[in-house]
């Protein structure tokens, strides 16, 4: 019979802190609310927090800069010749719809994983470093639920990042270059409308590609209270995985690397489009999410939260 009094007291403090942290959640948490509602509002508040941050917008702006730079460079310096520069660059001058794809080719190895690492590495460690983590946990959400919400928010950023590149690329391409039927890798053409659909599919592919890395970032984030450490570790892993992927002697490891299918989004530009690689990539990422999500859950559930 010792618990109710102090628990209620701590709960009140925790809710106050969580509100201060969570913005839109200000009106929401009511101790009597069912848990499902709590989860939805937690998700809403966490997503809102992410997109209220200057840092998030700065990263999205940096990603948007890639297609803009490519488009302006091609516009000023003239078309690139086939076989030089990143894939699809030679197509840009003829068809602005390729700006987005080219930008994704450029962004996928480093810039995109970097932003994903920042967001996913910050999930838990960021709260811990601010000292808000224990308050979040006192709110009736549960550790696993908090972790899931944090991961979903990181996944939302993956989609936002990929879409930013595609959408900004398409818009700037539309402004600066002629738009016409899209030339597929197989040498044939499809209409602009179908081309736009394929671009969206490519955006979805890239977003899915980043989910495994997000799970790794989430796990790294549960290991430390220093968010920069988790971010750096995640970003470095993304680069290391790609280096391993480039060494033929380690070929047996390649199918297991989360980076292995990052560039297969070009399969969606074939005729007939190959959805097989989309499915394979999703399976691969799901495996990484399961493993590192599981590790993160284990670590987060068993560790002592001191901050």
């Amino acid at each position: 019979m010792s618990s109710p009094e102090p628990a209620a007291g701590v709960g009140a403090v925790g809710l106050g802190a969580a509100n201060g942290h969570g913005g839109t959640a200000a009106a929401a948490p009511d101790p009597a609310r069912p848990r499902g509602g709590g989860l939805a509002s937690l998700l809403a508040s966490e997503t809102a927090t992410l997109f209220r941050r200057w840092r998030t917008w700065a990263m999205l702006a940096a990603l948007a800069l890639i297609p803009i730079l490519i488009a302006i460079a091609i516009r000023v310096a003239g078309p690139s010749s086939p076989g030089r520069g990143p894939a699809f660059l030679d197509q840009v001058a003829g068809n602005g719809l390729f700006v987005g794809v080219t930008a994704l080719v450029v962004a996928t190895p480093l810039f995109l994983p970097l932003t994903i690492a920042v967001v996913s590495g910050d999930t838990i460690a960021g709260e811990a470093s601010l000292g808000t983590l224990r308050y979040l946990l006192i709110a009736p959400a549960g550790r696993l639920r908090l972790l899931s919400v944090k991961y979903v928010v990181a996944a939302v950023f993956c989609a936002a990042a990929a879409l930013t590149v595609i959408v900004v690329g398409t818009l700037i391409g539309w402004v600066l270059f002629p738009i016409g039927p899209v030339t597929l890798l197989s040498g044939g053409e499809i209409s602009v409308g179908e081309g736009l659909l394929r671009l969206l599919a490519i955006g979805a592919y890239v977003a899915v590609s980043m989910l495994g890395l997000s799970a790794i970032g989430l796990f790294a984030s549960t290991l430390t209270v220093v968010p920069v450490g988790a971010m750096a570790a995640t970003a470095i892993l993304a680069v290391v995985a790609q280096i391993i992927g480039a060494i033929p002697q380690l070929e047996w490891t390649h199918p297991f690397l989360f980076t292995d299918r990052w560039f297969d989004f070009a399969d969606l530009l074939r005729s007939p489009p190959s959805w097989e690689s989309f499915g394979d990539n999703a399976m691969l990422q799901a495996a990484w999410i399961a493993v590192f999500g599981g590790l993160a859950a284990w670590r987060f559930a068993t560790r002592d939260i001191l901050s």
Binding site: V291, G293, A297, F300, T302
Partner: peptide, 11 residues
């Protein structure tokens, strides 16, 4: 038990 089981079980 509720968290460790899925954490180990899923992999």
């Amino acid at each position: 038990a509720r968290t460790v089981v899925p954490a180990v079980g899923v992999p």
